[in-house]
Simulated assay, not measured.
Amino acid sequence: MYVDSNNFDTFKYYLTNTSNVAEILSCRRILYVMVASCFILNALLKTVINSAIVAMINKKNQTDANLFDWTESEKQNILGIFFWGFALTKIPSGRLAEVIGSRRVSGYSMMLASLLTLLTPILAYWNYYALLTSRVLMGFLLGASWPAIMPLAAKWVPPEEQSMFMTTLASSAIGISLASHISGILIPKFGWQSVFYITGSMSLFWSLIWFYLIYDSPQQHPRISHKEKQLLENTTRKNVNAHLKKKFGEIPWKEILTSKPVYAIVFAQISNFVATMIILTQLPSYLDQVFQYNMKEIGLFSGLPTWGKLQSWDSAKSKDNIVQQETEMLACKSNNIF
């Protein structure tokens, strides 16, 4: 195997240079990793039942006491009722994060959702309506963590890195795919209950790490370096000040509600979400009922479509590079003027 010595030396220098290592381990880089993993686990908890439910229900002429005799209507209620809670917490949770902090809203919502995931097998055996109630609560909690992350960007993300930070939302595609793949591996070996125990435990452990590593602002972080703190204060002060000074009555609601581009974005997002959710919730059952695939095959094929969403990371990186170049050009022009 041939290794380019120039590339190897560059890589070695990057790792051994103290400033580069400090940059990799900076608080805002850790924030990016934790936010990306938040969306991965959020999607994992949200969609793992889509594949698991195939293995939870008795097939025709099957009488396994450990499985359920739910009708198709009851099955669809379990899959669909989640989204009522998911939709209702979008606006309130964003505002709540502005008031009490993203750290607490996102951290506690993920922690409670993890506990409900761990309890899913127990609730399913106990009572059908208890399971439905837990799914609604799961929707409330997992829906809350998405908008609650956004206030962090104003205080932690420099302008030239904002596009890349926002594409951490695309990491949810990893969680969606992993939910299917993990189900295809675990269920045939350990039973359908195993996917809820493992994914719930992973997310619960993540919640504890989140509270240790993440803070709402650089000023609150006890372990941030002085250099990084000063950098973030200088680059994000304008965003933070604008965010704090903007009152509810000062928001141009009329212009927003009469803007054609706003409605174009809204309808595009709704269409994308509906199409994606139909595929996520129904594809495992479709592969089971129409093609009679086994659980391993269902886990493999139902997780493949969402991997394509990761291409958005490349476009975001390109946009950040353009913003950084324009910022540098403006700085050069300012220096020439003075």
Rank of each mutant, 00 (worst) to 15 (best):
R95D: 04
S109G: 02
T117Y: 01
T235Q: 11
T120L: 05
L79C: 11
L287K: 14
K229M: 14
V274I: 13
L132A: 12
T120Q: 07
W313N: 10
T276F: 05
R135N: 12
A173S: 15
W126F: 14
G139V: 05
S145W: 02
S194D: 07
L287V: 11
H181A: 11
W84V: 13
W70Q: 03
K333Q: 12
G175F: 06
I270Q: 02
I149Q: 11
G308R: 10
R223W: 09
E98A: 13
R28G: 00
S271W: 09
L178Y: 05
L231P: 07
K59H: 09
F267N: 01
I57Q: 06
L178K: 03
F83A: 06
L67Q: 04
S5K: 14
P147Q: 03
M164T: 12
L44S: 00
W84A: 12
D216I: 13
I198E: 00
L178A: 03
Y128H: 13
T120H: 05
I53G: 08
S134Q: 09
L67F: 07
L79P: 09
N294D: 15
F301K: 06
I265K: 04
Q230T: 15
W126V: 14
S102E: 07
M111I: 00
E228D: 08
G143D: 01
K245P: 08
M295N: 09
L287H: 14
S318I: 05
I298E: 05
K296S: 14
K254P: 00
I40Q: 01
T236I: 10
T63N: 09
M138H: 04
M56F: 14
I337A: 15
F291K: 12
S109H: 00
G85C: 09
